[in-house]
Amino acid sequence: MRVMALAALTMAAPAAAQQEVSIGTGAVLRGLEKVSGDATDMQLPNGGQARFGRLTITLAQCRYPVGDPAADAFAFLTIREEGRDAPVFQGWMIASSPALSALDHPRYDVWVMRCTTD
């Protein structure tokens, strides 16, 4: 029943509400070390990695609305911590709504600022 309702809503959505997206060349992320309060900006290419404290951040891809890389960027990130096998975060982060899909870590915060382009 729920699947049918969701399918009906999806088909009823107007075409104007669906935005085209472009794939950026990378992303700018911001990391916050909560103990010291130090913030660090990191620029990663798609497929690239960065170290932030005990974290290793891997950017799979950054996407943005066509023609506006600074608006509503979203990036697929995998974040691993030293000494842990499973990622502490894996999924899409949205620049305009960082709390919607956030890294839940006692010491570090990471969020997407924008996509980069050529």
Score class of each variant (00 low, 15 high):
residue 3 V to W: 06
residue 4 M to S: 06
residue 5 A to Y: 00
residue 5 A to T: 06
residue 7 A to I: 07
residue 7 A to N: 02
residue 8 A to N: 03
residue 10 T to E: 12
residue 12 A to S: 12
residue 13 A to Q: 11
residue 19 Q to M: 08
residue 19 Q to Y: 14
residue 20 E to F: 01
residue 22 S to C: 09
residue 22 S to F: 07
residue 22 S to L: 05
residue 23 I to Q: 14
residue 23 I to N: 02
residue 24 G to P: 02
residue 24 G to W: 11
residue 25 T to R: 11
residue 27 A to T: 05
residue 28 V to S: 05
residue 30 R to D: 02
residue 31 G to T: 09
residue 32 L to Y: 01
residue 34 K to D: 05
residue 34 K to H: 03
residue 35 V to F: 10
residue 35 V to N: 11
residue 35 V to M: 12
residue 36 S to V: 02
residue 36 S to R: 01
residue 36 S to E: 03
residue 37 G to E: 07
residue 38 D to I: 13
residue 40 T to R: 06
residue 40 T to M: 09
residue 41 D to W: 05
residue 42 M to W: 08
residue 44 L to C: 05
residue 44 L to F: 13
residue 45 P to Q: 09
residue 45 P to H: 10
residue 46 N to D: 07
residue 46 N to K: 03
residue 46 N to C: 05
residue 47 G to I: 00
residue 47 G to M: 04
residue 48 G to P: 01
residue 49 Q to W: 10
residue 49 Q to D: 04
residue 49 Q to L: 09
residue 51 R to D: 09
residue 52 F to R: 08
residue 53 G to L: 07
residue 54 R to D: 14
residue 54 R to S: 12
residue 55 L to A: 04
residue 56 T to M: 14
residue 56 T to S: 13
residue 57 I to Y: 08
residue 57 I to Q: 11
residue 57 I to N: 11
residue 57 I to S: 09
residue 58 T to L: 14
residue 59 L to K: 09
residue 59 L to A: 04
residue 59 L to D: 08
residue 59 L to G: 01
residue 60 A to T: 08
residue 60 A to F: 06
residue 63 R to C: 08
residue 63 R to G: 00
residue 63 R to K: 10
residue 63 R to Y: 12
residue 63 R to E: 07
residue 64 Y to E: 03
residue 64 Y to N: 09
residue 65 P to Y: 11
residue 65 P to E: 07
residue 66 V to R: 15
residue 67 G to S: 10
residue 68 D to T: 15
residue 68 D to E: 07
residue 68 D to F: 07
residue 69 P to H: 15
residue 70 A to I: 10
residue 70 A to D: 13
residue 70 A to P: 00
residue 72 D to Y: 14
residue 73 A to P: 00
residue 73 A to S: 13
residue 73 A to M: 01
residue 74 F to A: 03
residue 75 A to V: 02
residue 77 L to C: 09
residue 77 L to I: 02
residue 78 T to Q: 07
residue 78 T to A: 05
residue 78 T to R: 12
residue 80 R to A: 15
residue 80 R to P: 01
residue 80 R to F: 14
residue 82 E to Y: 03
residue 83 G to D: 07
residue 84 R to Y: 07
residue 84 R to S: 12
residue 84 R to C: 05
residue 84 R to P: 00
residue 85 D to G: 15
residue 87 P to F: 10
residue 87 P to Y: 08
residue 88 V to A: 08
residue 88 V to T: 03
residue 88 V to F: 12
residue 88 V to P: 09
residue 89 F to I: 03
residue 92 W to R: 13
residue 92 W to Q: 05
residue 92 W to T: 07
residue 93 M to Q: 15
residue 94 I to G: 00
residue 95 A to F: 12
residue 95 A to D: 00
residue 97 S to K: 09
residue 97 S to Q: 06
residue 98 P to S: 11
residue 99 A to L: 08
residue 100 L to K: 04
residue 101 S to K: 10
residue 103 L to C: 01
residue 107 R to C: 00
residue 109 D to Y: 02
residue 109 D to F: 00
residue 111 W to H: 15
residue 112 V to M: 08
residue 113 M to A: 03
residue 113 M to T: 06
residue 113 M to R: 11
residue 114 R to D: 02
residue 114 R to Y: 09
residue 115 C to S: 13
residue 115 C to K: 12
residue 115 C to V: 11
residue 116 T to R: 10
residue 117 T to I: 13
residue 117 T to R: 05
residue 118 D to N: 02
